[in-house]
Design a protein around this nucleic acid. Structure first.
Lengths: 339, 339
DNA sequence: ATACCTATCTAAACCGGTTTAGCAAGGACT
DNA sequence: AGTCCTTGCTAAACCGGTTTAGATAGGTAT
């Protein structure tokens, strides 16, 4: 088990000081007036031994870890997994790595995780915040650490943010249903005080009201599972049998809804139309395929990294606030009639 | 912007040495004979200031980072995302964090990533290896670093490994099809030299041969996408119209297959039965729901962490080899006739 | 001969912890 | 009085880098 080479070993071997080696390693040879001859010699030796400086030591003295902390609600969810995948790619291209965690949307767990990331001195934070962690985020920013919120924001806090135009996405989708002549459009959402739910609901309401229709809102309270049960759906349809279309505010909600609709032996879209918010591989292969409001995931990832990179590399003020709302894309499939 | 407290600041403030503070922080007060009075005083101050030691400095001197490097083929795939989720949870409970990367099954990228993790001195590696990185893995192990392979192994290398019983899982699933009186069962797989594909194929062949049926194997070569096209399926069915069941060797393959089957207006399971290897949320909500060979994801995650933890905490020899093949679970749904 | 550049390179402090070796004081034993 | 423990604590080296503030040698202008 050969032990790793250090900068000191190199210096000793070549009979020079480690300062010199460090300068050369960091491309400061010219600036620090190290002769070309010596520079060459050192570089050659480094190449030969495939020397890699110890990142821990480097981080300790520079204070930079080149690590981005990513906290999403649940890394195994389709949307977050995809975003993580793109973020990782982009971060990697810029020399950064990602440490990630799932918050489970639990405020206490998130507080702990923020502390953990902080102790590990990550250089930047991407967070899908649960409610109630305003103080911790504020604290980070006051320490001059780059933070970008994602997917949902904290209304009480003026921070950088990347998310979807939830309002517009829903509004357009519901308008599309209306144009296809659906008259009784139910909106199924999770009992939640997160901004994205709220914005989606507002988008729905605006479209409904503009067209003088009656809003039908069903809130699903979720314990462990974000699903609508057959019983809940049956109840809804008994109370309001006129429902001819359903807009599900999340993809998992839509999946459970579709399953329930199947179990009641209703046909999509003949008996009932379906639109899901947030696309999923499933919706494309499903029979019938399911119309969905899609988030442009790669675009969001790009915006996130750009904003964070600008802050981390001090190209912009770290406290500078940049909010981006990317437009949603309505992907028309076969779970709705054509207009 | 208050600057962070260090162990030296604490020592100075209390007029003691930082050695003492360090001992107390690490619970070695008793062992190092620090008086209870002083211990109390220090702990109180630490509590009061909410002091957290700098992990970088700690890692630099101890050589431990408490970070596990996870390299999966693609973090956004259903299976890997789920595994990652469970791993993160378990690692977290044991004080470890996870850094992850997607290899894209690209040997060169994987080599780079291993180097990267190595530079960052992660304490342990969980890797789904692409072919051709035997040397790098061997190198890690020879440096006494804990490594566990996952999902697939490298036949040329005797290392710890956690994976599914691919052979048995496929064998049982195909036997089930045969019991349900299907006679012409096609096996659709990816053109790949990974062990898990090979093992699945062998399981299929054994079941077919034992029952004196004719094997029908279709290999899909994949560039960007792991999918079977409508054309490919049409071709297959034209050549062998007797096919009455299809076993797809991966879940994404199954999804594309199901989509193609739909487009050919064939009915599942009336015209053709379907079984997928590797479960997916989709299969449960699909109509008809799809029978699948499921990997017990949480169990696999548990095994992985256990083996790795044993090595990392030196409870077992680091080079000790422990191979675990967990049995697959056949989840019967509605894409096959009953027996 | 003196003062002043300039080009090259380096000693030493620093980042914030861990750990080894050992000091000082008091008590017990002979 | 001398030896030997035991208790309670600490100085200083170390991990492997970065960075500041010079040191040294040779050349040039006065």
């Amino acid at each position: 088990m050969k032990k790793k080479l250090s900068i000191r070993d190199i210096a000793n071997h070549l009979n020079i000081s480690k300062t010199t080696v460090s300068f050369i390693l960091n491309g400061k040879a010219k600036e620090k007036r190290i002769s070309d001859v010596l520079t060459e010699k050192v570089l050659k030796y480094i190449e030969e031994k495939d020397f890699k400086p110890n990142q821990l030591a480097k981080s300790l003295s520079t204070g930079k870890t080149m690590i981005i902390g990513l906290m999403v609600e649940k890394i195994s969810d389709y949307f977050f997994a995809k975003v993580a995948y793109h973020l990782e790619e982009l971060a990697y291209q810029n020399g950064y790595k990602i440490i990630y965690c799932s918050t489970e949307n639990d405020t206490e767990k998130t507080k702990e995780l923020i502390k953990l990331f902080h102790d590990r001195q990550v250089d930047g934070y991407i967070i899908t915040p649960p409610v109630g962690i305003e103080d911790e985020i504020r604290e980070l920013i006051s320490e001059n650490l780059p933070v970008v919120l994602f997917d949902r924001y904290l209304p009480a806090l003026d921070t950088s943010y990347v998310g979807l135009d939830n309002f517009g996405g829903t509004y357009n989708a519901v308008k599309h249903l209306i144009k296809c002549n659906y008259k009784n459009i139910a909106f199924v959402e999770l009992e939640s005080d997160q901004t994205q739910m709220h914005d989606r609901q507002q988008g729905y309401l605006k479209a409904i009201e503009e067209n003088k229709l009656e809003p039908i809102i069903k809130k699903i309270s979720f314990q462990n599972t974000t699903a609508i049960t057959v019983d809940e759906l049956t109840g809804l349809l008994q109370k309001q049998p006129e429902i001819d279309a359903m807009f599900f505010a999340t993809n998992y909600l839509a999946m459970s809804g579709i399953k329930a609709i199947n179990q009641l032996n209703l046909k999509i879209p003949d008996n009932i139309a379906v639109i899901a918010f947030d696309d999923h591989d499933v919706f494309d292969i499903y029979n019938p395929s399911i119309t969905a409001v899609a988030q442009p995931i790669d675009e969001m990832a790009k915006e996130l990294i750009n904003i964070l990179l600008d802050k981390m590399e001090s190209r912009t003020e770290i406290a500078a606030v940049k909010k981006v709302e990317v437009p949603a894309r309505l992907i028309l499939r076969n779970s709705t009639r054509n207009s």
